[in-house]
């Protein structure tokens, strides 16, 4: 990991009207690194990762993904989005398509795979998230945990270099959180570069190389999980961990 970082964010700011969601945020993510972002709601953690694939456009600062600087140009957008997958809190599966169609639409239309190749690839990743038997069902016929695993498989089908997770377990019933976290843990072990916004501190402790704590649009603290969990440097992070771990 001595090369240039895969993702570089330099003094990035983002406003929603008068509200500043990100204040001069800087962050490096290396190839294969697993970063967990946490913080109270409204702290800007979702905005942070949504800026990386430009679901939100930042107003100032610089974001470089895999050597490409993020601008409004369609070229840079295509290049970056092809490398960056995203998993959403609300899954956002396409409800009118079967699981298989959800997985093959990107590879067929964007990567130009044949139907057969796209299907082979889809089945490979459905296997990986352990629901190959659900391929012909519609999203509404699946449990929340299964839907989120389909969403992860859909991202994997594009074979991205980076996966972003925006609170992937927050909309799930407690008994389904584990199955999604297991899939994510397995992905982390395979060397995928991941940025995960989550409150699942057990998961963070297990897989994160780097913990990022955000509050009020700023990155307050960055560190290895074993350090920050035992001895957080900032008061705000300490208070946040207190709240989240002791309930």
């Amino acid at each position: 990991m001595t090369d240039a970082p895969l993702i570089t964010m330099r003094r990035v700011s983002k406003f929603f009207g008068d509200f500043q969601a990100l204040k001069d945020v800087s962050l490096d993510v290396a190839l294969g690194e697993r970063v967990v972002v946490c913080g109270p709601s409204g702290s800007g953690k979702s905005t942070l990762i949504r800026c990386i694939n430009r679901l939100e456009a930042h107003e100032s600062g610089e974001i470089i993904v895999d050597g490409t600087t993020l601008t409004d140009s369609a070229q840079s957008l295509d290049k970056i989005r092809a490398n960056v997958g995203m998993v959403f809190q609300q899954f956002n599966l396409f409800p009118h398509m079967t699981v298989l169609e959800n997985l093959t639409i990107g590879p067929r239309r964007v990567l130009g795979l044949s139907d057969a190749d796209a299907k082979t690839r889809a089945m490979k990743y459905l296997d990986r998230v352990q629901i190959p038997d659900q391929a012909d069902k519609y999203p509404r016929q699946l449990s929340g945990g299964q839907q989120q695993r389909v969403a992860i498989a859909r991202s994997l089908c594009m074979e991205p270099r980076i996966l972003l997770f925006d609170e992937p377990t927050s909309a799930l019933d407690p008994e389904m959180i584990a199955e999604v976290l297991d899939v994510m843990t397995e992905l982390a072990k395979s060397g995928m570069t991941m940025i995960v916004v989550t409150h699942e501190m057990g998961f963070a402790r297990r897989v994160a190389d780097k913990m990022v704590f955000m509050d009020k649009g700023e990155i307050v603290e960055v560190g290895a999980p074993e350090d920050v969990f035992t001895a957080p440097k900032s008061k705000r992070f300490a208070a946040f961990l207190q709240q989240i771990l002791n309930h």
């Binding site: 679901l55 960056v84 995203m86 956002n92 396409f94 639409i105 964007v110 991202s155 594009m158």
Partner: peptide
């Protein structure tokens, strides 16, 4: 969310409309 999901798999405007939104 449907637009964002379509963007996250890199579908362009035409394909997003044709395969995701209009149906």
């Amino acid at each position: 969310g449907q637009y964002e999901a379509a963007q996250s798999v890199s579908l362009n405007y035409r394909d997003t409309m044709r395969y995701i939104i209009l149906p």
